[in-house]
């Protein structure tokens, strides 16, 4: 799962044009200039593209931080494996 986290951090850094080192578990919507409502939807689309897991919109709404998203992603991965 550590690998999953690293991949997620790299994806977020790439999408929102920032350095992975500036991200933490607590980083969330509004903390980065590009992570606004549109950026949030874009992130969910990129997560699906990269990991092949669809984050349901009801879950996406509840993502307040990278830790929340990672938890959802881990759950989706374990459900399908």
């Amino acid at each position: 799962m550590e690998n999953l986290k690293q991949q997620l951090l790299e994806l977020i850094a790439d999408l929102f044009k920032c350095d992975v080192a500036t991200l933490s578990d607590e980083t969330g919507p509004g903390d980065l200039p590009a992570w606004d409502s549109l950026g949030h939807v874009a992130l969910m689309a990129r997560v699906q593209e990269k990991f092949g897991r669809h984050v349901p919109v009801e879950d996406a709404i509840e993502v307040e931080s990278i830790a929340d998203l990672l938890e959802i992603l881990e759950r989706l991965v374990s459900e399908s494996s």
Binding site: D36, S37, L38, H40, V41, A42, M44, A45, H54, V57
Partner: peptide
């Protein structure tokens, strides 16, 4: 839309999410 086209339209993020094929 997610690339920022029509970003100025209120509620465009809702529409972009709605239009996802999933």
């Amino acid at each position: 839309l997610l690339e920022g086209r029509l970003r100025q339209v209120p509620g465009i993020a809702f529409l972009a999410a709605f239009l996802r094929s999933t």
